[in-house]
Computed example of a mutant assay.
Amino acid sequence: MDAGELKAADVQVEIATDLETAVRATPGVRSVYRSGSLISNLLRAGAAALGGRPEDEPLVSVAPVGDGVAVEASIGVDSAAGSGDTLRAVHAAIDAVLATQGLRSDSITLTVVHVQPAEAAPAG
């Protein structure tokens, strides 16, 4: 597959879903959030409410750029895992998914939007 084939909405959703699954499965990732500004997220929610876009679309964004793709993901990480290590692991997971699809990354933008403290150990 090349970046040109990614212009079809259903192909973009399929790849974005695969990417989101890989990001969620990465050790240290506690959650995945919708990328973008508050305003773009409000516009997206409004369009979904009007029937423009499904609300259950993947949270990871993927778009064709030149000969490659741009991927954007916002994540919550476990404080015990460390943000830097988790970001490197997520980047590798995204590269692996793209490689299986025959795609090359033009850019991968990862944002840590929440660091969740480790669960308190039960007293005992």
Rank of each mutant, 00 (worst) to 15 (best):
E72I: 09
S83R: 05
A92P: 04
V69T: 10
I94M: 12
A89P: 06
A73N: 01
S74W: 03
R88T: 14
E72W: 00
A80F: 04
V90T: 05
G84S: 14
T86R: 02
G76P: 04
D67K: 11
S79T: 12
I75A: 03
D85K: 02
L87S: 13
S74T: 12
A96C: 09
I94F: 09
A81F: 03
A80V: 06
S74I: 00
D78W: 09
V77M: 04
A80W: 03
G82K: 02
A96F: 12
G76R: 00
D85P: 00
V90Y: 01
G68W: 10
H91Y: 12
V77I: 13
G82I: 01
V71T: 06
S74C: 04
D78Q: 08
D67H: 10
G82E: 06
G84W: 03
L87N: 07
I94V: 15
H91R: 12
E72V: 13
V69Y: 11
E72Q: 12
A70N: 11
G82Q: 06
A89C: 08
V90L: 06
A81S: 11
A73T: 06
E72H: 07
A93H: 11
D95V: 10
I94Y: 04
V69C: 08
A70L: 15
S83N: 02
H91V: 00
V77C: 10
V77N: 03
A96T: 15
A80C: 08
A81E: 01
V90A: 03
G76D: 06
E72S: 12
L87Y: 05
A93N: 14
V77Q: 06
S83T: 10
D85H: 05
T86A: 06
I94S: 10
D95P: 02
A70H: 13
L87F: 08
S83D: 06
V71D: 05
A80G: 14
I94E: 10
H91M: 08
G82P: 03
A80N: 06
T86D: 02
G82N: 06
A73G: 02
R88N: 15
D78I: 00
D85I: 00
G84K: 09
V77L: 05
V77F: 07
V90H: 01
V77G: 08
S83P: 09
A96H: 13
D67W: 09
V69S: 02
G76H: 01
D78Y: 01
L87G: 08
